[in-house]
Design a protein around this nucleic acid. Structure first.
Ligand SMILES: NC(=O)c1ccc[n+]([C@@H]2O[C@H](COP(=O)([O-])OP(=O)(O)OC[C@H]3O[C@@H](n4cnc5c(N)ncnc54)[C@H](O)[C@@H]3O)[C@@H](O)[C@H]2O)c1
Ligand SMILES: NC(=O)c1ccc[n+]([C@@H]2O[C@H](COP(=O)([O-])OP(=O)(O)OC[C@H]3O[C@@H](n4cnc5c(N)ncnc54)[C@H](O)[C@@H]3O)[C@@H](O)[C@H]2O)c1
Lengths: 218, 218
DNA sequence: TCTAATTAAAGAATATATTCTTTATTAAAA
DNA sequence: TTTTAATAAAGAATATATTCTTTAATTAGA
């Protein structure tokens, strides 16, 4: 029996996946304004994208639109949230409670998007033993010794020089997906999912576009 | 006279720009280990990418490699940093001093990558008037009234519902580039650069890849 | 000095993603 | 009831990005 995922085992393109949370935010605002139905044409105009891209993106989910009417807002929101994995809250461990790690621990938004940090690990005696927003911080050795069960998602926010070392510890401890906030390309086996989120990479893109714009307008 | 940017006015592909900071991190680690030269073959093997992609990416900068030797590490680092705009520190304003905004203010890393927040704006009386890491926090009305000069880069970390409103205020106040951390697609004129950095989008991609992996291994 | 191996770089081929075109549907208007 | 306009969806065409292939350079070794 098929697992229900529309038609094929094919990978959903990453660009499409990245756009979906944008649609979601947009739809939630539209819902607040009382809209019951919404068409791809309308979404596209409002968001400044191509209308056929909207329908193609949404076609990866199991939602179907209605000709001349568009999509029903509420079911679309529900389907998108569940498709994106935001309805089930996954547990995660966080590695490296520095400035960025602390910020993520303080963030209340993540839980709404399906991620809950249940423990954090560091080596710094100043943070080990403490608690941030109810999340206990242990020494990384505690993870090595005990945590072979539990969360399979790990958030990596350690310094650049320790990235690979901590990655190995994470994988040995049973982590299957790594949300990597360091600008380092970490090496793992094929069965581990790595999601790179380097803020500096985005900064580089922004600087470049700004440079191009300002030199072309001169 | 040409402005010096290698050969063409063509845009550097965003995927290439996003990979460059990864090369940079890698090269800095290699430099620490005393390497003077490094080849694309070597970089590629270490980082798990295609060697020709490395040379193609680096060809957008003005660096040239040497046959049978590779690139000189130090000049390559310098060229990458300057190409990416990390050597000149640009000033920026931050809008929305909530959990994410505060985290960014506490971050010491950004300055190394060419961005320095010189002031922040909010509406919450609990934060307005305070200072975080030396950065003063003003009421957003102060920006409307006075700040027509100064930084042209703005960091947007306000709630979803206020994104568009604050965006307009930013643009009216002279902001030319917006680093948008909200999951909302903000609308601006063509001459404004928008860099979207929604953490939730990355989370969505990670969840999807994890789901695909776990269902294919069963 | 000559040969072999390694490499950067350019361009071709392939793969991927986006946009355009066509078709069929259907709600609303005539 | 019939016509019209708006739309989703599928597939084709185009654009973009990645990977493969070839070429020329040049260092190191014979
Ligand atoms: N701070 C930011 O806003 C920001 C932005 C973009 C990227 N980053 C990247 O995120 C990473 C963390 O940045 P940061 O500014 O939070 O650094 P940080 O130095 O403030 O924090 C790093 C933390 O990791 C801990 N650590 C070191 N070795 C460890 C180990 N072996 N096991 C467990 N924990 C260990 C340190 O004790 C420290 O608490 C860096 O790679 C940085 O490049 C940070
Ligand atoms: N917190 C996170 O880690 C995180 C992660 C990903 C994305 N985001 C996004 O970033 C944005 C901010 O998230 P947050 O968790 O920091 O929210 P938050 O509610 O903690 O902070 C928002 C801040 O914006 C201020 N604000 C509200 N209206 C304003 C206005 N008109 N002008 C200026 N300031 C105003 C608020 O007073 C508050 O201080 C949201 O859009 C969220 O979706 C946050």
């Amino acid at each position: 029996m098929p697992t229900g995922n529309k038609k094929k085992n094919q990978l959903v393109p990453e660009p499409a996946l990245r756009r979906m949370p944008c649609y979601l935010s947009y739809l939630k605002l539209a819902q607040k304004e009382g809209m019951k139905h919404i068409s791809s044409t309308f979404i596209a105009r409002d968001m400044g994208v191509d209308p056929t891209q909207v329908t193609k993106d949404l076609s990866y989910t199991s939602i179907v639109g209605k000709t001349r009417v568009g999509y029903e807002v509420e079911p679309l929101i529900e389907e998108l949230e569940s498709f994106l994995g935001f309805t089930v809250v996954d547990e995660a461990y966080l590695f490296g409670v520095g400035s960025l790690g602390t910020a993520l621990l303080h963030d209340h938004g993540l839980k709404q998007f399906g991620l809950k940090v249940i423990a954090a690990f560091d080596v710094n005696p100043e943070v080990v033993g403490k608690t941030i927003e109810g999340v206990p911080i242990y020494h990384i050795d505690e993870f090595k010794n005990k945590n072979r069960t539990g969360a399979i998602i790990g958030i990596l926010t350690v310094p650049v020089g320790n990235s690979q070392e901590v990655t190995s510890i994470m994988v040995e401890g049973g982590i299957k997906a790594i949300w990597n906030f360091t600008p380092v390309t970490i090496k793992v086996d094929d069965d581990i999912v790595v999601q790179n989120t380097s803020l500096y990479a985005h900064l580089a893109v922004m600087f470049n576009r700004l440079k191009v714009k300002s030199s072309s307008s001169k």
